[in-house]
């Protein structure tokens, strides 16, 4: 048993248990943050993406023991912010969502990009979501929606 302290969506939280438990399981089952999805379980599809200290990472391959002292933001935490609202509205307006399973990861990838590059090109966006797989949309509407968010959210990032 290990006690791990980290910041989750702006609040300091503690986890006590197996340090090798996957972060995605701790988020979904321990903190009921089910917006983070598990797709492949191998870090390849990006559905479980969260921000760790501002960097996009796949929570299905990170043991919770490796995030001691870190800052984790999930889709639930992002949704409550003006940036998150802008992304959600832009994804809806741009028709980016079909089945929706990949969307939390896509939104997190968009946020990670816009935090460092508020005015991305289409290529920048495609690189930023290159680790996120969508089986429905063909990506174009997602890319356009992220570009839309960067325009609508001028000054937010």
């Amino acid at each position: 048993m290990s006690k791990i302290k980290f910041t989750l969506n702006g609040k300091v939280v503690f986890y006590e248990g197996d340090p090798l438990r996957r972060l995605v399981d701790v988020l979904r089952e321990g903190f009921q943050l089910t917006g983070t999805k598990e797709g492949c379980g191998e870090g390849e599809c990006g559905a479980c993406s969260v921000l760790k200290n501002g960097k996009l990472v796949t929570s299905c391959i990170i043991p919770v023991g490796a995030i001691d002292g870190d800052d984790i933001v999930t889709i639930e935490g992002l949704r409550e912010t003006p940036q998150g609202q802008c992304l959600v509205e832009s994804f809806a307006e741009g028709g980016a969502v079909q089945c929706g399973f990949c969307i939390p990861g896509m939104v997190m990838a968009a946020q990670a990009l816009l935090l460092v590059n508020p005015h991305p090109t289409e290529e920048d966006v495609r690189v930023a979501i290159s680790g996120n797989i969508c089986r429905c949309t063909g990506y174009d509407l997602i890319v356009e929606s992220i570009l839309l968010a960067s325009r609508k959210g001028e000054g937010l990032w």
Partner: peptide, 9 residues
């Protein structure tokens, strides 16, 4: 080696 997310970790 890995996708963008994996390379971040």
């Amino acid at each position: 080696c890995a996708s963008f997310e994996k390379r971040n970790a």
